[in-house]
Computed example of a mutant assay.
Amino acid sequence: MNQSLSLQAPLQAVGIPVSVGLSALGQEIQHIREHLTTPANPLTLESGLLADRPVWVGRYAEALIDKVPESLKTFASRNLRFALTALQKIEVELQQQTAGIDPTRLSIVMGTSTSGISDSEQLLKQYFNGNTSLEISYQPQEMGCLAKALQRYLDWQGAAYTISTACSSSAKAFAAGQRLIQAGLADAVLVGGVDTLCQLTLNGFNSLESLSADICQPCGINRDGINIGEAAALFLLTRTSAPIMLYGVGESMDAWHISAPHPEGLGAATAMQRALESAAITAEQVGYINLHGTATPQNDAMEIKAIRQVFPGQHVAISSTKHKTGHCLGAAGAIEAFICTQLLKDQHWLPVHQHTDIDPDLADQNYVSEPLLAGNINYVLSNSFAFGGSNISLLFGAGT
Rank of each mutant, 00 (worst) to 15 (best):
Q3S: 09
L11N: 04
I16L: 06
G21L: 07
G21D: 08
L22C: 15
L22D: 00
E28W: 12
H31N: 15
H31I: 13
E34D: 14
T37C: 11
T37P: 12
T37F: 12
A40T: 09
P42C: 08
E46A: 08
S47D: 10
D52I: 04
W56S: 13
V57A: 11
Y60M: 08
Y60D: 15
E62N: 14
A63S: 15
V68G: 11
R78W: 00
L80M: 08
R81K: 15
F82S: 02
A83D: 06
L84K: 13
L84V: 15
L87N: 02
Q88R: 14
Q88N: 15
K89P: 12
E91W: 08
V92S: 15
L94G: 13
A99M: 14
P103C: 00
S113N: 06
S115R: 06
S118K: 04
S120C: 13
L124C: 14
Q126R: 15
Y127L: 02
N129C: 14
N131C: 12
L134Q: 13
I136L: 08
Y138A: 10
Y138T: 11
Q141F: 05
C145H: 01
A147H: 03
A149H: 05
L150V: 13
D155K: 02
Q157L: 02
T162W: 05
K172N: 11
K172H: 13
F174V: 02
A175C: 08
Q178S: 11
Q182F: 01
Q182M: 08
L185C: 13
L185E: 14
L190V: 06
N203P: 14
G204V: 05
N206Y: 02
I215R: 02
N222D: 10
N222W: 01
D224S: 10
D224E: 08
I226G: 11
E230D: 09
T238D: 03
T238V: 03
T240W: 02
T240P: 12
P243V: 05
L246V: 10
M253F: 14
D254R: 04
H262R: 00
H262G: 10
L266F: 09
G267I: 09
G267A: 10
A268M: 00
A271T: 09
S278H: 10
A280Y: 05
Q285Y: 01
G287A: 04
Y288V: 11
Q298I: 06
A301H: 06
E303L: 11
K305C: 13
A306R: 01
A306L: 01
I307Y: 06
G313M: 05
V316K: 09
A317I: 00
K322D: 05
T325N: 09
A334Q: 03
I339R: 07
L344P: 09
Q347R: 00
T356L: 05
D357K: 04
D364M: 12
Y367A: 14
S369T: 15
E370Y: 11
P371G: 15
V380L: 06
S382D: 10
A386Y: 01
F387E: 04
F387Y: 07
G388Y: 02
I392C: 11
F396D: 02
